[in-house]
Simulated scan of single mutants.
Amino acid sequence: PSHLSFALMYNLHFISMKVDASTKHLPEKQDPKTSLDSMLGGLEQELQDLGIATVPKGHCASCQKPIAGKMIHALGQAWHPEHFVCAHCKEEIGSSPFFERTGLAYCSKDYHHLFSPRCAYCAAPILDKVLTAMDQTWHPEHFFCAHCGEVFGAEGFHEKDKKPYCRKDFLAMFSPKCGGCNRPVLENYLSAMDTVWHPECFVCGDCFSSFSTGSFFELDGRPFCELHYHQRRGTLCHGCGQPITGRCISAMGYKFHPEHFVCDFCLMQLSKGIFREQNDKTYCQPCFNKLFTQ
């Protein structure tokens, strides 16, 4: 055994000298790595000639040569450590984490740069949690209201012109406004006079009563009941106080239903609108003569 050990050491020393000498006299264009591989192959053969087994651990998936030293198992294959590299940057991966795609290995940086989804707000790769909304991907902390900047809670978001908004800002900015109170109309509403109204806001502009019959009168962009509409227009009968919708008589700065334009004393209808006035009252000619000319 000591003789074999001396012979092995001698041969290794001799081969090392051969490698050094060969390396020194390599032609200028010869690849030193190729020459070294050749020398290592010769070393393997000489070790076998000495009776020392040199069983390879496998063949490298990259260079297809036997692996006699350190090796890496990855992607279901064996590799020389220096040959297990990123498919994009070609840097040695070694024992660092890597990602597989279509049978190729990528370092973390290149994998995320090439294949990870991008945030619609910052355009950076999304490395951890991803939020999908509006047909795009986002970092969760970058999906927020386009107006106030607050991240959305459980109530979700509303979309307008391809931008997300919280409920409060969406309603304040884009919901139709009530014609009565000018606040956003969210649910039940009435449509009248080319705008929308909260049902409780669509009332007479003077008495604030709702329109139970469904009919109303418009004046200066506001709704009114029949009584207050005619009152504002000056078309209430001075005799009965009710609206005049047909023929009317104008007298003493007032309007009357024809049948209500009567003598204040005998209550007879003043025919053909002929009357006499005294103390803001109307009289027929006979009553006027009887009361004021005797």
Rank of each mutant, 00 (worst) to 15 (best):
Q45F: 11
G41R: 05
T102P: 06
P258N: 04
L47Q: 12
D264C: 04
Y229W: 07
A21Q: 10
A7I: 14
G69F: 08
C148E: 12
E159D: 07
H158F: 10
F170G: 01
I72Y: 01
A87W: 04
P223K: 08
F6S: 14
P1S: 11
S215P: 00
Y111D: 01
E159R: 04
E28G: 09
Q30W: 01
F174H: 07
K33S: 05
G103K: 06
T195D: 02
H25Q: 15
L43A: 07
Y106F: 13
P117C: 10
R233E: 06
K65V: 06
M173V: 05
H147M: 15
H25S: 15
P176H: 01
H228P: 00
E100F: 01
G179R: 01
D220F: 06
A61L: 10
G246Y: 09
S215Y: 01
S38D: 13
F261K: 00
T54L: 04
K18R: 15
K65Q: 15
M134C: 12
A74K: 03
G239A: 00
L131M: 15
S215Q: 02
G41L: 06
A7Q: 15
D31F: 02
K272R: 14
A21W: 10
E28Q: 13
T54F: 01
S95Y: 00
L75P: 02
Q64E: 08
G234S: 03
E277W: 09
R232S: 12
K160E: 12
V55N: 15
C107E: 06
I67C: 08
F261S: 00
V19R: 14
D31H: 05
F217D: 11
M134R: 13
S209D: 10
S210Y: 02
L40E: 14
S96C: 07
L270N: 03
K70I: 05
D206Y: 04
T132I: 13
A120W: 03
P66K: 11
P81Y: 07
A133Y: 08
F115G: 08
T282V: 12
K24L: 14
S210T: 06
M193S: 10
S175Y: 01
M17K: 15
D37P: 09
P243I: 00
S271Y: 04
D206F: 02
C240V: 05
E46I: 01
H3F: 14
F170E: 04
G273V: 14
W79K: 08
S175L: 00
